[in-house]
Design a protein around this nucleic acid. Structure first.
Length: 627
RNA sequence: GGGCCCGUGGCGCAGAAUGGAUAGCGCACCGGCCUUCUAAGUCGGGGGUCGUGGGUUCAAGUCCCACCGGGCCCGCCA
């Protein structure tokens, strides 16, 4: 077990023996307040009517420090705080030894206990390229999956492929009837080309009712899986999908399974849900009104949605709505159904693992459903439909807390970026992105832009580097910059995307973390002694202690982040860790220190590398040995 | 009309499920630090009534209420 946790437990024991029922201990936010601090005296003072400072003194008097391992001394401070100071050399040995030994897996916990979790993210309509808003989804989802793995969960990653909507019909209209070629102009990716075509066709449809009619016919043909239109659609979908996957892989994401919406119907996941909800009297046909002839899902006893009316699940023409398909799909995720998909192998992730896709003729079966819980990374605008699905699952007898909608706010474009697209947005400082409206910044061009910036810097610093090496490092810097930018923000806050801000590689950015790691790597490269954490100098520098403490905190950070599903927490940890390392780097020379200090500091640097590697892996931020 | 979310120095953010000791950081601005482990770094300076008003508490950026400002959702679209 990690050193800091042992310290916290020891403090807890001391307080318990002194008479505190439920000790409230936390790591001190400032070294002036010791290492671990308690405000229990305030609570006790309230109950007994004494002064907090008197209570604190009494508690401390009752503590026996003669047999502690990690606690060196205790003091009462301020109005009644109890501050504990650690026996640092001892604690340092524990923390550094563990970190050095475990390397990139340092800090991992077993809180998940092997539970199986299905994380779904990306889920971009397969008719366009990923824009920066989709990238937020990918980075959050991928980091969540990574974080859960760090905490001992078994994780599979799904990507929902909505291959049966109007948006596909619109694209097919262009290819079948409007003379658009299926081959993009040279140099343009197929998915970006399709996105452009989609925007153009949408505009034409708006102005031409006849085209709208044609689109409707195509959409109807998509309902029949054996129609010629459906076959063409499958071709387009898979081709766009492969291009999208390349972008996602570039960002560091990976997938286990791609579930196509059309296959939810084909494999009949919906009918059983329909039957059961109907038997429970929660589905009924509207006899009159604007929704006459539709099957509606009863929301009248829902605490909040009851005021908004019931939800259509089957349209009057007999086709299902998006929400209905999601009912079936969600029930499958939680193992409420006997039916399952069949798959075929689609591709390999960069790590070599297989990516399966649902396929009506597929030979493969895999158990991806029946998760302990499932997380859907979907933007906040879908809160209502997601809540309806959750509610339906509850009615079907599932524990609704197993169905988690991980909602995040959208990414919009700054005024400056809107103007680059020749948009006049007036008074407002931002504009919402829209694939249909052609208002977006795509991920690949953005990555290329940041990469180019990073490459310039690398070439200046290392004139001897080959083009390949420059490109390789610049790519990783670009990915780190974009991922960190998207992850560090609170998911509840809208990101107003600005190219210049997002492409920054100085200050509070991903490359800042990479830089600290590269510096550490360099020290170890140049060292002529072996790191040794076992014989710390009798007194440690405050910069050393800060760094050791921050390294020691990682397991606690992982648990906290997993408990709150907060990938932001990992980003802020990385930033803080790198900041503290830089402080150490500036103030504590390693290579020029006396031998006994040197080997200990080398171990500290090594331990730092373990902690950064581990946390960077959890956040999906690539590292470079030299930059 | 009903519901959800946001509001911290000029700008962008952090303040960690459980309220605690002088509110942190980046950008921008001014001024230092490269014959010493990469200056993509670092140190110092100016700049904040944490939207407003109440309340709870020994203690509120953090909890409660109201209001103001901004965003989103309430389709036989997905």
């Amino acid at each position: 077990m990690a050193g800091l946790r042992k310290l916290l437990e020891e403090v807890g024991r001391l307080l318990t023996y002194a008479g505190v029922g439920q000790p409230k201990v936390s790591l001190a936010k400032d070294a002036r307040f010791g290492d671990v601090t308690s405000s229990d005296a305030f609570d006790l003072a309230k109950k007994t009517g004494k002064k907090p400072i008197e209570v604190a003194k009494e508690l401390v008097e009752r503590m026996d420090l003669s047999r502690t391992v990690y606690v060196e001394r205790v003091e009462v401070a301020g109005a009644g705080y109890i501050n504990f100071h650690a026996r640092w050399p001892r604690l340092a040995v524990d923390i550094l030894t563990e970190a050095c030994e475990k390397g990139r897996s340092y800090g991992e916990t077993s809180m998940g206990g092997g539970q199986y979790v299905l994380v779904e993210h990306t889920s971009v309509n397969p008719n366009k390229a990923l824009h920066i808003g989709h990238a937020r989804n990918v980075c959050l989802g991928d980091s969540l999956a990574r974080l859960l793995k760090k905490n001992g969960y078994r994780v599979a990653v799904a990507n929902y492929i909505d291959d049966s909507g109007v948006q596909m019909a619109e694209l097919l209209l262009a290819f079948k009837h409007l003379g658009y070629s299926m081959e993009p102009p040279s140099g343009e990716k197929f998915d970006e080309y399709c996105g452009r075509v989609y925007t153009e066709v949408s505009k034409r449809i708006e102005a031409d009712p006849q085209l709208e009619n044609m689109r409707r016919q195509l959409a109807a043909q998509l309902e029949d899986p054996y129609s010629e239109t459906s076959q063409l659609n499958r071709l387009v979908v898979e081709r766009v999908l492969m291009e999208q996957l390349r972008t996602c892989w570039r960002l560091g994401a990976r997938y286990d399974v791609l579930n196509k919406e059309s296959d939810i119907l084909f494999f009949d996941l919906w009918s059983e849900v329909f039957k059961r909800l109907r038997e429970m009297g929660l589905l009924y046909v509207a006899e009159d009104g604007p929704k006459k002839g539709c099957w509606l899902f009863d929301l009248s006893s829902h605490p909040k949605l009851s005021k908004e009316g019931d939800e259509v699940v089957v349209k009057s023409d007999g086709s299902t709505t998006y929400v209905a398909r999601d009912f079936g799909y969600a029930a499958w995720k939680l193992g409420l159904l006997d039916k399952d998909f069949r798959y075929k192998l689609l591709a390999k992730n960069p790590d070599g693992s297989p990516v399966y896709i649902t396929d009506r003729g597929g030979a493969e079966t895999h158990k991806y459903g029946n998760a302990s819980f499932t997380i859907n990374v979907v933007d906040v605008r879908q809160k209502r439909p997601q809540e309806i699905v959750r509610y339906a699952l509850e009615k079907l007898g599932a524990d609704p807390s197993r169905y988690i909608h991980y909602a995040y706010e959208v990414v919009s474009l700054s005024k400056a970026d809107a103007e680059k697209l020749n948009l006049n947005i007036g008074e407002r400082g931002f504009v919402h992105m829209s694939g249909r409206g052609g208002i977006y910044v795509n991920v690949d061009p953005l990555l290329n832009y940041v990469k180019q910036k990073a490459a310039e810097g690398a070439r200046q610093r290392h004139p001897d580097w080959s083009d390949n090496r420059v490109s390789d490092v610049a790519e990783k810097i670009a990915v780190a910059a974009i991922r960190y930018f998207l992850i560090r923000a609170d998911p509840d806050k809208m990101i107003v995307f600005d190219s210049e801000e997002a492409s920054d590689i100085e200050g509070d950015t991903g490359p800042y973390i990479q830089y600290a790691y590269a510096r550490a790597t360099r020290i170890l490269e140049k060292a002529d002694s072996q790191p040794n954490p076992h014989n710390p100098p009798p007194t440690l520098d405050t910069k050393e202690i800060s760094l050791i403490k921050e390294i020691g905190i990682l397991p606690l950070v992982y648990e906290e982040a997993a408990r709150n599903l907060s990938v932001k927490r990992i980003a802020t940890y990385l930033r803080e860790l790198a900041f503290i390392f830089n402080d150490f780097y500036e103030n504590c020379p390693v290579l020029s220190a006396e031998e006994n200090v040197k080997v200990f500091r080398l171990a500290l640097v090594e331990a730092f590398r373990s902690a950064v590697s581990s946390a960077a892996e959890a956040a999906g931020i690539p590292l470079v040995e030299e930059m």
